[in-house]
């Protein structure tokens, strides 16, 4: 394909410049989402009743098409990167909250009791016991958030060339150069896969205690306690 890397001059950027821009527009929102999700998730773990409404509200946010949010935000933040990044941060938050809540909740009751008995305070227990054990679940959420964030940045092209690599899509149509669209899709996909690989690496580094390769089927506790619900129903 001729001119595959020949970036039209209206984008005012090089190929690698677009990649850098794309990564920044995609990853900063995930980071912001993660920072917001951690305390929110902890609240949901602490106050169980909070979780269902939070889940409901965030799911509806998630369903609002990004383009619509971009358009509305233009009024406040203009045709800027920030306009693209705000909704992406919200989407990341939505993906990460349930991932963190489920991860923290999956820490076995006995482990918590043991750490309390050893004299861990609530904060230390959260940072040194609950969070590390929840790492695999949180990383799984991050993988989804990063992939969708990288994919969604492209939509920013529709509000005036704020889509980084996505801007190539608009130019592909404008100048009738399909190879630019191929470039955009492939580069975005490769970026997503590379970021995913980095996250898997991070997970493996952070969780040296996890068995590698085939995970074992969770085995039911050997003896079941007498069910308490049965009597109450």
């Amino acid at each position: 394909m001729n001119g595959f890397f020949d970036i039209p001059s209206d984008l005012d950027n090089t190929y690698f410049g677009l990649i850098g821009l794309h990564l920044r527009e995609a990853l900063l929102p995930v980071l912001a989402g993660l920072l917001a999700a951690l305390p929110l998730a902890q609240l949901c773990v602490r106050f169980r009743w909070l979780y269902p409404p939070v889940l409901g509200v965030t799911t509806v946010f998630y369903a609002i098409p990004s383009l619509a949010v971009f358009v509305v935000l233009i009024d406040y933040t203009g045709q800027t990167e920030l306009t693209v990044m705000i909704p992406l941060a919200v989407y990341s938050l939505v993906v990460l909250v349930p991932a963190i809540v489920d991860g923290v909740r999956s820490v076995p009751e006995e482990t918590l009791a043991a750490s309390t008995a050893m004299g861990f305070g609530p904060v230390r227990r959260y940072l040194q016991v609950q969070l590390p054990i929840a790492v695999p679940a949180i990383l799984a959420g991050l993988r989804v958030a990063v992939a969708s964030s990288i994919s969604l940045v492209s939509v920013g092209a529709l509000i005036g060339n704020q889509g980084a690599l996505g801007n190539l899509l608009a130019d592909a149509q404008k100048y009738g150069r399909p190879e630019l669209a191929v470039n955009s899709v492939l580069t975005t996909a490769v970026l997503a896969i590379l970021c995913d690989a980095v996250l898997v690496l991070v997970r493996n580094l952070l969780t040296p205690w996890m068995p590698r390769g085939r995970r074992q089927r969770p085995k039911e506790a050997a003896a079941r306690p007498e069910p308490q619900e049965a009597a109450a129903k």
Binding site: A147, S151, A170, P178, S184, I193, D196, R214
Partner: peptide, 26 residues
């Protein structure tokens, strides 16, 4: 299991909007 994980990762990596424009152009 590995194939499932690979397919899922690859499918997630493909940008929906990019794919739409690409196929529409082609």
């Amino acid at each position: 299991g590995n194939a499932v994980a690979f397919v899922a990762t690859a499918a997630r990596a493909l940008p929906s909007f990019g794919l739409l424009v690409l196929i529409a152009v082609v």
